[in-house]
Design a binder for these strands. Structure first.
Lengths: 115, 115
DNA sequence: TTAAGTTGTTCGCGTTCTGCGAACCTACGC
DNA sequence: GCGTAGGTTCGCAGAACGCGAACAACTTAA
């Protein structure tokens, strides 16, 4: 189940095995084992893979069949609670410091425009 | 993470180790290992445990902090479609240009850290 | 046309971890 | 006392992990 869904998601994103292995800091052959079904990822790896693919562990594990359902939503970044909200760029999670700096960046930019 | 959450959920439901072990058809000592953190359940066991406790695997694995929440919100900014996702800072909507600049900002920052 | 790199696959190997039953200690009720 | 149920921990055999290496197929660079 998880092997099939990992393979589908990766191909849809056009990512290589090596890219994902680098993101999780594991060997290419290790991740290849996940997709082939030869191995099972650790629970931590499952969580990280769900995050990387932008889906849920429930989907990866086959507990649900919907990859994701993204509703229209307004997200205020200065109040963002990172426990349940994960912003990524290039598939890599943004830290709270990243977000704080982005907020500062936008505020400066706006201040300059308002001049 | 999962050990803590399993323990909390089981106590809240006032279930015994043996009861859960019977439900999953595993040994009592096996499930006890899950709660003590001495062992990690298989992916299949995680799925069954989530179902038994009426929660999500995302919660058991610590991808979300709300037991009721079915899915972790992961938003990839480079793919952000503003038609159904609205980011704000200080209550003011971010433009696509704002987001593009934030992405560039983070990429530069990461490049410097990696460099 | 070579040479060099990338991608995906599959080995073997050493290590780690799983799952089990058994044993143990409480606490409770008879 | 006795028996039962709940919870913890142990040793063991077997399974599974993660890794690097090697390989063929393909693309890119020189």
């Amino acid at each position: 189940m998880i092997s099939k869904r990992l393979s589908e998601l990766r191909k849809k994103k056009k990512w290589s095995l090596q890219y994902i292995a680098d993101q999780l800091d594991i060997a290419k052959s290790t991740y290849a084992g996940y997709e082939s079904g030869y191995r099972q990822p650790s629970l931590e790896a499952v969580r990280e893979l769900a995050q990387l693919f932008g889906t849920s562990t429930d989907y990866l594990l086959g507990a649900v069949d919907d990859p994701e359902k993204r509703e229209s939503k307004v997200i205020e970044l200065t109040e963002a609670d990172l426990s349940n909200l994960h912003l990524t760029i290039d598939g890599k999670l943004l830290t709270q410091e990243d977000i704080n700096q982005m907020i500062a960046f936008i505020r400066v930019k706006r201040g300059m425009e308002a001049g």
